[in-house]
Every structure is written in structure tokens, then in C-alpha cells.
Simulated assay, not measured.
Amino acid sequence: MPFISVNNHRLHYTDSHPDGAPENGLTLVFTHGLGSSQNYYFPILPYLTSKHRCITSDTYGSGRSTYTDQPVSIASIAADVVGILDALNIPQAVVIGHSMGGLVVTLLGSEYAGRVKGVVAIGPTHPSETLASVMQKRSETATEGGMEPLANTIPNQATGSEATPLARSFIRELVLGQNPKGYAALCRAIANAPTVDYAAIKAPFLLIAGEEDKSASFEGCQRIFDNVSSANKELEVLKRVGHWHCIEAPEQVGRAIEEFVAGI
């Protein structure tokens, strides 16, 4: 089981091409959302790994990256992504993030421009009072009752009308497998997320939104997209898809990223 040590903690990760990206390929680094793990991205990796180096990791406090009571924030998660690049001697990468990970990759595009070849934000959350309130309540739920109450509701409430029972069961397993303390800490990180300077993002930019996403509203996604300064930016809206895009519609997401990356 591969782990990498960055910023005083150990992150579980996978690397499709440890010896470097294929010829003419790029390195893609993936950051998942709250209540998830790197496994969220595995349904889309078959569309990408034949041509590109794909690195996935469990964010500190999620999945197999053990929570050890260290402080965690959107900025610290972004620093961990840069730490992974440093540890693997990767000068630049396309950064791909879902939900909370969307906050991370927009921050990376804004503040670490020299390390970012392109940005893909999938259902990115935009900081707001409403988001902070929802995250605070989820933090309290996880702290008081563990993950089961959330695992019993999120798979149905946060998916679109065409999500399959298999997709919902996968989401349930991701949520149920979280450390409640780590989950609560990440909820607080989102609640306290900084407002990203989207205008500072000049790298090629792709935003993938779900038409039926109630967690990352289309209004928030549109605001992010409109304020990004990149001359090469695209907005893809997936019909009848909720917030768990890579699980609900892996072919659509995989193809969209494949085509976007080909144009960088």
C-alpha cells in the first residue's frame, strides 16, 4: 500500500506511471471532495491513464490517510498537493478537484500558478454563509453520531435523478468509511474556506457542473467560471447529474477531461 510523507503526515496515493508521464502526455493530480477518497476518481481513470500520468491521493483525514489531529484547511490541502509534486519531482501538473477539491484546485490555480498546467474543477463549492452553516451542521452530526446518519442521507439527497442504486451504494461506502473526527475537521475547513481570487487563474480551465447538483449550485459554479481570467476556459453541464459526477456519469466526465487535456 503506497504512502507518501508530506507536511508531517502520511497520505495514501496511487501513481499510474511512477517512471513519468507517457511520451507527449501530461501529469494529472486529483483531489477528491468531502466524505470521499481517491476511489471517487477510479471510474474515470480508464479514459486518461493510457496517455497521461494520473496521481490520486486520499486527502489528509480522509480514506486511508489517517487523521492525527493536525490542523487542516483548504490552504493546507493545497500545500499537500504541492508537497506531492515536490516529493515526486514533478514541476507542473494539471490539477483536478471535486467539490472541496474544487476549492483546492482553484486556490492552486490562483496562488501556485507556476506549478499548474491546467485546472479542472468538478462541482466546485463557492464559499458562502450557507455553505458554512451546512458544514457546521455536518461537523456536529459526525462528531455526535458518527458517519452512519450521513451515509444514510447523502447518497440519495446529493445525486441526480438518473443515479443508479450501484452509484448510490458506492457513495454510501465512501461516506461510511470516513473517520468521523477527520470528516468533522474537513467540514470546518470548508466552513472557513477563503474566497479565492478567481481572476488570478490564467491556466486553461474546465468547470464541470451537474444540472441537478444541490451541493454546488449552478449559480456558484457560474460565478467561479465567469471570474476566471483564462483565455482557454470551458463550462460543461451534465444533464440529470447531481453532485457525485464521476460516479454518476463517469463516461461523460472522463471524455470531457480527456478532450480538455488534449487541448492544453
Score class of each variant (00 low, 15 high):
222 Q>F: 01
224 I>Y: 03
122 I>Q: 03
158 A>Y: 08
210 G>P: 04
111 E>Y: 12
133 S>Y: 13
8 N>Y: 06
126 H>A: 08
237 V>E: 00
80 D>I: 06
100 M>N: 14
92 Q>R: 15
251 E>R: 14
2 P>K: 02
227 N>K: 07
102 G>K: 01
11 L>W: 05
188 R>K: 12
43 P>I: 10
77 I>R: 14
105 V>M: 06
160 G>E: 13
238 L>I: 15
130 T>E: 12
24 N>H: 14
80 D>L: 02
159 T>M: 03
178 Q>R: 05
18 P>F: 09
124 P>S: 01
248 E>Q: 09
197 D>F: 02
250 P>Q: 03
254 G>L: 02
58 D>C: 08
52 H>E: 03
248 E>P: 14
246 C>Q: 13
198 Y>C: 10
211 E>H: 15
177 G>F: 09
217 S>N: 03
114 G>E: 15
36 S>H: 03
168 R>Y: 09
66 T>I: 12
255 R>A: 05
175 V>A: 08
226 D>M: 01
36 S>W: 01
237 V>K: 15
224 I>N: 03
114 G>F: 01
223 R>N: 10
189 A>F: 05
125 T>Q: 07
96 I>C: 03
223 R>L: 13
221 C>F: 03
55 I>A: 08
28 L>R: 12
145 G>I: 00
217 S>D: 02
43 P>V: 07
183 Y>K: 09
163 A>W: 00
55 I>R: 01
43 P>L: 07
104 V>I: 14
115 R>S: 11
241 V>L: 04
92 Q>G: 00
24 N>E: 13
95 V>Q: 06
128 S>V: 04
258 E>D: 12
138 R>M: 12
74 I>K: 11
204 P>G: 05
92 Q>I: 10
144 E>S: 14
19 D>F: 09
178 Q>V: 01
133 S>L: 12
250 P>S: 00
186 L>C: 01
202 K>A: 12
145 G>E: 11
29 V>C: 10
222 Q>V: 02
77 I>C: 04
234 E>R: 15
41 Y>L: 10
32 H>P: 12
38 Q>W: 07
148 E>T: 14
193 A>L: 04
250 P>E: 10
159 T>C: 13
18 P>R: 02
248 E>R: 07
150 L>H: 04
258 E>C: 11
179 N>P: 01
65 S>N: 11
83 G>D: 11
156 N>D: 13
8 N>S: 13
128 S>D: 04
173 E>V: 09
232 N>R: 15
242 G>M: 07
149 P>K: 07
